[in-house]
Design a binder for these strands. Structure first.
Lengths: 117, 117
DNA sequence: TCTTGACCTCGAGTTACTCAAGGCGGGTAT
DNA sequence: ATACCCGCCTTGAGTAACTCGAGGTCAAGA
């Protein structure tokens, strides 16, 4: 598929996919004779994963390490697994943050309600 | 209290507090005779709120609007309330995102497990 | 008196995009 | 056949939100 469809499916913008590719985050992107990128279906799973990792706060450098490991083949799976497990711990922390922020907001809103009465 | 304590209590870094003040996000910061900032206890609640709003993804511009309303006094409370309610909807969206990312990670980790077996 | 520590300002650097300018090539309308 | 549009391409500049380093002030302790 073309880059526009890859963008639509992954959630990333076209520009962001190109940027990620330039930074080494998207390996194995084929090109047609006139230089246009071509994404195989399996190839579009990757931007989708990147989308979610970014959306939940994984830094570029970690994504780069992850992509580099991926490019090295299956024997790097234990390493990649660890990166994902680390990230899932970050997710837990973020969930707690949302919880706490919600408490702060709720308290603030209560104070506002009192002022409005 | 001094800026270092305000930083420790709010969660923001010293540099970030100064930056936020320059951008109009922290009103009413007093200065001592030699130019050092002085935060009253009520005054430190504000950076703390900013910390949580930022940490959960509120853009600077919205924070600026929020701070400007705050500086205008109590009659802007309904407006401020709406901003916080909007943000709390964003929080809900983020919670869903974390959930979805977790699913993606879990599926990926399962695939890794299969490969390792 | 000298030094240490916490503060100050200003300006440059960083991260992760995001967008605009200018150009190519393929398909469709005249 | 030519004109035009569309989606792609690259490069380089711009933006958001910090983050850091250099260089300077001032008060208090050894």
């Amino acid at each position: 598929m073309r880059i526009s469809e890859a963008a639509a499916r992954s959630g990333l913008k076209i520009d962001t996919i190109r940027y990620y590719e330039a930074e080494g985050l998207v390996p194995n992107v084929l090109r047609s004779s006139d230089g246009q990128r071509w994404f195989s279906p399996e190839n579009v799973d990757w931007p989708t994963l990147l989308y979610w990792l970014r959306e939940t706060g994984m830094p570029m450098k970690v994504m780069q390490r992850f992509a580099a490991l991926y490019a090295q083949g299956d024997e790097t799976i234990p390493n990649r697994k660890n990166i994902l497990l680390d990230h899932s711990r970050l997710l837990a922390k973020r969930r707690e943050d949302l919880e706490r922020c919600n408490e702060v907001l709720t308290r603030k809103l209560e104070i506002y309600e009192e002022h409005l009465r």
